[in-house]
Write a protein that binds this DNA or RNA. Structure first.
Lengths: 187, 187
DNA sequence: GTCTATACAGTGATAGAC
DNA sequence: GTCTATCACTGTATAGAC
């Protein structure tokens, strides 16, 4: 019998999706085994620290993705092209609002206290990277900080309400408004 | 031995706080018995439907509170005084960002699917009530809808980030910005 | 590296005494 | 209306065969 052998990197996105859909407490090992087609034994081979390690690795993975695809461009590339790029990446990453933000979801219950620094760093870096880009685009620092915070607030709030209302168009509408609002500072 | 006899209405806020802190899955009956000083037997006396009924009753309670204190004023009172009143109530209800929104938290995992209509109705009514107030304040309907959505998005996103960053000042800052933004339409 | 079998604490829920 | 005792089940985690 042929058996598909998985690498850890193949499993992570599968497990991530379970956490995303069910939350930390809701993502039971049985749900995870069902989704990955891996037994508990195998899961513990990859993640000796169990469920908590799985979540930690996944959060790190999410963070790395955002660093590569969003934060570093904001920090290094030409500001407005990086910002334009951010909107595209955000829209596809969150699947137009059908996918939630794991960092945000974990922040809303006591799961936050397990992963305090990971969650905090993610949002701090996002806000600071966007603000820095705006500053490089000649927006005054104080104003840039404010717009950046409002933008990340808008993205997270938009994702939440998109799910709460079960309305796919809601997140798109939120993004459109945010883009319009930030574009005022374009020359 | 004197025993304090509880009424259902006394228990609800205690149980609500457990759900708020731990989420639906995290709020185990043992945590709830500990917080209420009531045995499982007593809890099932008040809530024969168990945990799901507890959450449903609590969500209904939250909804009723918002209807009385925020939605109806927005729908009936002088628009700008109702909106001013909303900001005050929101700030104290969410304890300047230290308390999360149960409706929002439940929306972010599969708990949403247990309470779809309750969550949906809450946010729909809030958005529509605020928009209606703005329309009565002579803001064009389309613009009013947009501002209203942006405002509720801002409140929810602000609550989320306030917790994620563990920064009490964040929610206050968000509220200040939202108030400033909406006040542009004041005459 | 994958599995099955198992341990054992905790889960939501019920029965029945007081 | 409150409790204790107990239920069946699921939770995370581990041991050890292959």
């Amino acid at each position: 019998m042929t058996r598909t052998v998985f690498e850890k990197s193949d499993i992570i996105p599968l497990v991530a999706e379970v956490f995303r859909e069910l939350g930390y407490e809701g993502a039971s090992l049985s749900k995870i085994t069902a989704r990955t087609n891996l037994s508990k034994g195998s899961l513990y081979h990859f993640f000796p620290g169990g469920k908590e390690e799985m979540a930690a690795v996944i959060l790190d993975n999410v963070d790395q993705w955002f660093i590569s695809n969003i934060f570093e461009p904001l920090e290094k590339s030409e500001p407005w092209s990086a910002i334009d790029h951010m909107w595209q990446e955000v829209d596809t990453y969150f699947q137009s609002g059908q996918r939630i933000c794991l960092m945000g979801a974990f922040a809303l219950d006591e799961t936050r206290d397990r992963f305090t620094t990971a969650i905090q760093q993610y949002f701090v870096r996002w806000i600071e990277a966007l603000s820095a880009a705006l500053v490089r685009a000649d927006v005054p620092k104080e104003k840039a900080d404010q717009i950046s915070e409002e933008t990340i607030v808008g993205i997270q709030g938009g994702l939440l309400l998109s799910r709460a209302l079960n309305d796919n168009s809601f997140f798109e509408r939120t993004l459109t408004n945010l883009i319009q609002r930030i574009s005022v500072y374009r020359n």
